[in-house]
Design a protein around this nucleic acid. Structure first.
Lengths: 223, 223
DNA sequence: GACCAATTGAACCATCCAGTACATTTTAGC
DNA sequence: GCTAAAATGTACTGGATGGTTCAATTGGTC
């Protein structure tokens, strides 16, 4: 509910005043926001369409009107989440930095994105429980692929040329390491707390883990 | 179905033959095995008690007789999974190895355990989706805590004394890094395949990722 | 071979829940 | 203003689902 930047909703056409006051885009966004919270909290099968509808400003009827069925709604939520992280990745501008700094900042930003968006992390968990079937059927997410991996490849090659990175590494492997170190503390936060009594969401713990992750990635890559 | 080492089921008391042939322990185990598969595949809310019952040699009635309700059954599955990894950890004998070898083998074994037991990984994902509520209510899993972390602490201190490890590291941090690098490829296997077209379960990919994880852990810890 | 507790079978139930039917209101174009 | 299409409200349904009832069968003990 808080990480949705809901712009002031510029009504393209004048807004009449009456009993009803219709606003399709707003309704859509409203449904999506509530749906995301529910799916993130209870999973795809755990979430209840009635519950989502109840927490919305509109009715269950509208959910089916706009999204077809429960899976369509889930898919829309998933696509929005992936679109958002793709935007985040595109917003990174690391080309100007020296390789070592670039990787460090990429790792730091990635860590922060995961820590700041547990909803995204939990959605990805849910989707993986379902064997990523919906990622498959939905819009080709392949663009993610390029942006993230190519960015790493570019930095890595610059680092090789500059002689600061060790040779023989795979950009995908680097990406997996950064992702794993960013994802795990968030995805497994609850069980870590339960088993080790450590709250990874606490500011100090998070900062220390962040530093450790960056350091680990640098040590992995640097000569 | 394959990663459960089901010992030859030594019937402590003789087995009679009759129309019915009652065997509580066997029934229990049978239910648990099917239930694990279902929960792992569909999650807690996605799994259906009727479906579990149908795949069992016995009936739904027995599930409720032995486990009370769906959550009780889930809890039993969860406890069994954690008991199993605790056994695995206890079975590791690294005290005799030089520190560097010990950490490398710990990382390798941990990686292999996760890769060989995707059921465990998926169960932990499911449990985290549910905020580890059932880990909390079930038998104190705190013993895990000790065994895993203390083992690392012991190795780490030997490594410090030998001058091969760098100072200032937290055993929990080391554990989290090893776990993250072991867990992520399995938990996110489906989305990795979907987004990057890489199959982490393929033998070559797995071996390369394993080597990379071990190397990364060593570089993280060693001076 | 009788008795009791443990174990099992078959049918049943109350509720939940995804999805729909049908009517109604709103907006936009003329 | 009139009309068609888009958007919304209300009420409902049929099947799925977790859980239960009641009785029957078994194994051990005496």
């Amino acid at each position: 509910m808080n990480q949705i930047a809901r712009p002031p909703a510029p009504p393209p056409v004048a807004r009449k005043s009456s009993s009803w006051t219709q606003d399709p885009e707003g309704v859509r966004r409203g449904i999506l926001a509530v749906a995301r919270e529910e799916f993130v909290e209870k999973g795809l099968s755990g979430a209840r369409v009635d519950e989502i509808a109840a927490r919305t400003a509109t009715s269950k009827r509208m959910i089916y009107y706009y999204f077809g069925d429960k899976e369509g709604l889930y898919r829309a939520v998933l696509e929005e989440a992936y679109a958002r992280i793709r935007n985040f990745e595109r917003s990174l501008d690391l080309a100007g930095l020296p390789p070592r700094e670039a990787i460090a900042r990429l790792a730091g930003f990635t860590f922060d994105y995961h820590a700041d968006n547990p909803d995204f992390v939990r959605l990805v968990m849910v989707e993986n429980i379902h064997h990523a079937r919906h990622l498959e059927s939905s819009s080709k997410i392949g663009e993610l692929n390029l942006s993230a991996i190519d960015m790493i490849r570019e930095i890595y090659e610059r680092g090789l040329a500059a002689g600061v990175f060790r040779e023989g590494l795979d950009p995908i492997d680097i990406h997996l390491t950064i992702s794993a170190l960013s994802f795990y503390n968030v995805s497994n936060q609850a069980s870590i707390r339960q088993v080790f009594g450590h709250d990874m969401a606490a500011p100090e713990a998070r900062i220390r883990r962040r530093d450790s992750a960056i350091e680990t990635v640098l040590r992995m890559i640097c000569r």
